[in-house]
Simulated scan of single mutants.
Amino acid sequence: MGLLVILESVLSLFIMILVGVYASKKKIITTKMNKGLTNILIQIALPFMILSSFIYTYDNTIRSNVVKTFYYSIITYIVIIIVSYLLLLPIKRDKKTILHFANVFMNTGYVGFPILNSIYGAEGIVYGSIFNMFFVILLWTYGLVLFKGSFDKKELKKELKKILLNPSIIAVCIGAIIMIFNIQLSGGLLSSIEAIGNITGPLSMIIIGVILSNVKIKKYLIDWTIYYGVTTKLIIIPAIIYLISLSVGEPSKAINTVIIMSAMPASAMTSILAESFDKEKEYAAVIVSVTTLLSLVTVTVLLKIII
């Protein structure tokens, strides 16, 4: 894929972000409204986009790549957790927790899927959905342990239930059944699923724009951990994942999808959980915002390298 096509895809997303910034500055979208839009995105739009990506006729190569993506995703998360832990040894206390969480949990939903959709279409979303399954599983287990410390038996059951009932997980399961058994859906049903799923990209970028417009980063400009954390997140870890991928063999959309997802900015859950547990919540918001903004540059460079 040429650099011009990549730049146009990223520019399109950036323009949508600016719409969100404008809507926030003009009070068209308030913070409370943005939370509602986020719920619509996560609970409705994204699951429908995931489901719609499975409703096509795929050849055996793609089905094989779906299985491989399971392995690639597991290995990638293990590598990221280990590398992040080692790189963040110089950082102490709550800031270390925030940065480690940000490294492990990337923004697969708001940013990852729209980029995959613009680059690889439905096939990329299928592979991205597999990667996102592990995101959800780890988020409500390992992610909460980072902030909370541990679970009792009752809490563990509650979090496992959240995982099983997560709309994205359900969408992947239904989509996999449709793909495996080649189930044909009626035109009206298919059109509705696709139409709802198609709002994911624009909606997610607008939400990011609103988030970016409300963060004040001036007082953090002299904090060296911000620069170190952003460099680790957006450059060092994706570079390591890419170098490891070279040993796998021939590049494929499945491998590239996992690399692209690993290069995404910090998940908005970084800020949400930091606020919930009252741990460096402003610092977390800055990390999310800065990595999101700078990822437009770093992801563009990465796409040029791997595609």
Rank of each mutant, 00 (worst) to 15 (best):
residue 276 S to K: 14
residue 54 F to R: 00
residue 305 I to N: 13
residue 201 G to F: 04
residue 299 V to I: 00
residue 109 G to L: 01
residue 210 V to L: 06
residue 125 I to T: 12
residue 240 I to R: 08
residue 86 L to G: 02
residue 175 G to Y: 08
residue 117 N to G: 11
residue 203 L to P: 04
residue 299 V to G: 00
residue 210 V to N: 13
residue 141 T to Y: 12
residue 8 E to V: 03
residue 248 V to P: 08
residue 78 I to K: 00
residue 189 L to K: 00
residue 77 Y to N: 14
residue 87 L to A: 10
residue 62 I to C: 03
residue 287 I to E: 03
residue 238 P to Y: 04
residue 18 L to G: 06
residue 258 V to M: 09
residue 271 S to Y: 10
residue 261 M to H: 08
residue 11 L to M: 11
residue 186 S to N: 11
residue 83 V to W: 04
residue 285 A to H: 02
residue 118 S to C: 01
residue 156 L to K: 15
residue 216 K to E: 11
residue 71 Y to C: 06
residue 131 F to C: 11
residue 101 F to M: 14
residue 232 T to M: 13
residue 301 V to D: 12
residue 1 M to L: 04
residue 143 G to T: 08
residue 111 V to F: 13
residue 96 K to M: 06
residue 64 S to F: 07
residue 57 T to C: 01
residue 21 V to D: 14
residue 172 V to Y: 11
residue 215 V to R: 05
residue 199 I to A: 01
residue 301 V to F: 03
residue 193 I to V: 12
residue 87 L to V: 14
residue 7 L to N: 02
residue 127 Y to M: 05
residue 180 I to W: 00
residue 130 I to K: 02
residue 192 S to M: 04
residue 62 I to H: 10
residue 146 L to R: 05
residue 255 I to T: 15
residue 24 S to M: 14
residue 248 V to F: 15
residue 73 S to L: 09
residue 47 P to D: 00
residue 198 N to P: 06
residue 61 T to W: 11
residue 190 L to Y: 05
residue 176 A to L: 13
residue 247 S to K: 11
residue 47 P to M: 08
residue 228 Y to M: 15
residue 132 N to S: 15
residue 72 Y to I: 08
residue 114 P to I: 06
residue 17 I to T: 14
residue 22 Y to D: 10
residue 304 K to S: 11
residue 57 T to Y: 05
residue 246 L to D: 04
residue 83 V to N: 08
residue 264 M to D: 02
residue 267 S to L: 05
residue 227 Y to F: 08
residue 220 Y to A: 05
residue 176 A to T: 09
residue 112 G to T: 03
residue 134 F to T: 08
residue 163 I to D: 08
residue 60 N to I: 11
residue 230 V to E: 05
residue 111 V to C: 05
residue 17 I to R: 06
residue 179 M to P: 07
residue 144 L to D: 13
residue 109 G to F: 10
residue 189 L to Y: 01
residue 4 L to H: 02
residue 31 T to N: 14
residue 33 M to D: 13
residue 229 G to S: 01
residue 228 Y to K: 06
residue 26 K to G: 03
residue 226 I to C: 12
residue 55 I to M: 09
residue 141 T to A: 05
residue 143 G to R: 13
residue 279 K to P: 07
residue 156 L to I: 04
residue 259 I to Y: 15
residue 85 Y to F: 08
